[in-house]
Write a protein that binds this DNA or RNA. Structure first.
Lengths: 226, 226
DNA sequence: CGCGCAGTTGAACCTAATCAATGGTGGTGG
DNA sequence: CCACCACCATTGATTAGGTTCAACTGCGCG
C-alpha cells in the first residue's frame, strides 16, 4: 500500500566500529541507513537493540487489509527493537538519513549474559516508553483531530525545536500519511488541520516538511483542551 | 465524574506475610483490596510493584475536562505499578475483589539493590507489556466499534474463558463505561454493539456481567476484518 | 517531457457521539 | 419492610466530526 524504495535491510558497507562505552556490552558498533530503507520487519528475529544517534525512524504495524498504524517516531536517544520473545512485532523504517548504535543481543540474551548495568538501562528505557505510550493512548482514544495534531506538533516543539529569531522551528521529515497513521486519522484530515492551524496563526509552514511554532502557549492550550 | 466508593487506599488489616520466592527480593507480602477501592493514584510515589494474584484492576488516566481513558485491565499474572521516575502516572482501582503480591521498591531501587534476577523479570514483563500496548494502539487508532468490542471479547475469551458444555464463558466485572473508556468509545456504543453481537449469535449475555462465546472463530473474524 | 506520488481542497456520506427517555437494581434510611 | 435515590444499562433520535471519493496542483525524477 505505502510503497517505499526497493528494500535493502542494512547498508553494511557503512558500518563503522566504536569502542564499548560505560555500561554497554562490548562489540557495539554504529550503522547508517538511507531514507526509506528498513531496519527490520515484523517477524524478524530480534538479535539487536538499537539506539538512535541521528535522524528519524518510524515503527509500524500493518493489518491484512492494508490499514496501517505508526507506533512511534524514533528520535536521537530513543531505544528501538526491544523484544520479549526474540521476535520483532513491528516494522522499522528510516524516515530520513539515520545513524544508529547497534547492541548485540536482546532482552533474553542480555539477561543470560548478566550485563546488569545494560539491563538496568533497558528497563529504565522500557518503563519510560510505557509511560509515553500511555500518553499516546489518550491521544488515540480520546482526543479530537485538532487536539491530536496540536499535541503532535507541541511534542516535537519541545523535543527538537530550534529557536531562531523569535520562532521555534523543526523539520517534519515524515509524510502526512505517516502522521495520519500515527494519530489514527486520514491524511486529508492532517492536511486540513495543518491549514487551519496555519490560518489561525498558531504555526507557519515555510515548506511542506518544515514547521515553525508561532504561539507555543496557545498551541499547548489547543492540544489539551479543544 | 465517575464517582466510586469513598476512598481508602489499602485494606492494611488484611495484609498477610509470605516468604520470598524464586528470584524475588525478600519481604514480599500479599494484600487484598475490595471492589471500587484504589491501589494508587496518578502522582503518588511509586514505592511498590504489584503482581496480580486474583481479581481484576483497571489503570486509568483522566483529562482535566473529565474525559477518561482506561489504559489496561490487570488480570492474574500481570505486573502493575512499574515506573521510570518513581512516580505513578496513572490511577489504579480494583474492579472486583483483588489480591496482589507486593514487592518493595521500583525500577530505580531495584537497579541499585542489584536484584538482577528480579530486574530481568521486570524487563521481560515490560517488553511484553510494550508489545501488547502496541496491539492496543491498532485497536484504538484503526479499528471500528464492532472490531474493537469483538477484539476485546476475543482477548478475554483466550485469556480467562472457562469451557462449559460447548460454550466458553467468563465474567465481565467492569462496567460498560470502563470498557468504553478502554476502547475509546461511548458507553452507549458498547451497549449497542453487545446487543448486535448477541443478536448475530456470536455471544450470549446470561447476565449483564457475564458473557458466553458461541462462535469464537466467527468472533475472531469480526475482530480482525470488517 | 511526462509520469507518479505527495499534498491540498471540495463535496457527499457515514459512523459513532451526543442528547434524551426509560427500565432495572442495589443500597440506605425512614 | 419498603420507598426512594443513585447509578448502570439499554434503546431511540438527532447531530457532528472525520472519512471517503474526487479533482487538481506542484514537484522530483527518470
Amino acid at each position: 500500500m505505502y510503497v517505499t524504495s526497493p528494500v535493502s535491510t542494512l547498508d553494511t558497507d557503512t558500518i563503522t566500529d566504536t569502542e564499548a562505552a560505560g555500561g554497554y556490552p562490548p562489540l557495539t558498533r554504529t550503522i547508517n541507513i538511507t531514507a526509506g530503507h528498513s531496519l527490520f520487519y515484523e517477524g524478524d528475529e530480534a538479535d539487536f537493540i538499537y539506539e538512535m544517534i541521528e535522524g528519524v525512524v518510524r515503527t509500524s504495524k500493518v493489518l491484512l487489509d492494508g490499514r496501517r498504524l505508526v507506533l512511534s517516531f524514533g528520535y536521537p536517544g530513543d531505544v528501538i527493537g526491544l523484544s520479549h520473545d526474540g521476535i520483532h512485532h513491528c516494522n522499522c523504517e528510516a524516515v530520513s538519513k539515520v545513524r544508529l548504535r547497534v547492541y548485540p543481543g536482546n532482552t533474553a540474551s542480555a539477561e543470560k549474559a548478566g550485563h546488569t548495568k545494560f539491563t538496568n538501562r533497558l528497563l529504565h528505557h522500557a518503563a519510560s516508553e510505557i509511560n509515553s505510550m500511555q500518553e499516546h493512548f489518550i491521544m488515540l482514544g480520546r482526543k479530537s483531530a485538532t487536539e491530536k495534531v496540536a499535541s503532535f506538533l507541541y511534542t516535537l516543539f519541545l523535543r527538537v525545536g530550534e529557536k531562531r529569531d523569535g520562532k521555534t522551528c523543526f523539520d517534519l521529515p515524515m509524510s502526512r500519511s505517516d502522521i495520519a497513521d500515527f494519530l489514527g486519522l486520514s491524511h486529508e484530515t492532517i492536511s486540513r488541520t495543518l491549514t487551519v492551524l496555519r490560518q489561525g496563526g498558531y504555526i507557519e509552514l515555510p515548506r511542506k516538511h518544515r514547521v515553525c511554532i508561532r504561539q507555543p502557549v496557545l498551541l499547548k492550550t489547543l492540544a489539551e483542551r479543544n
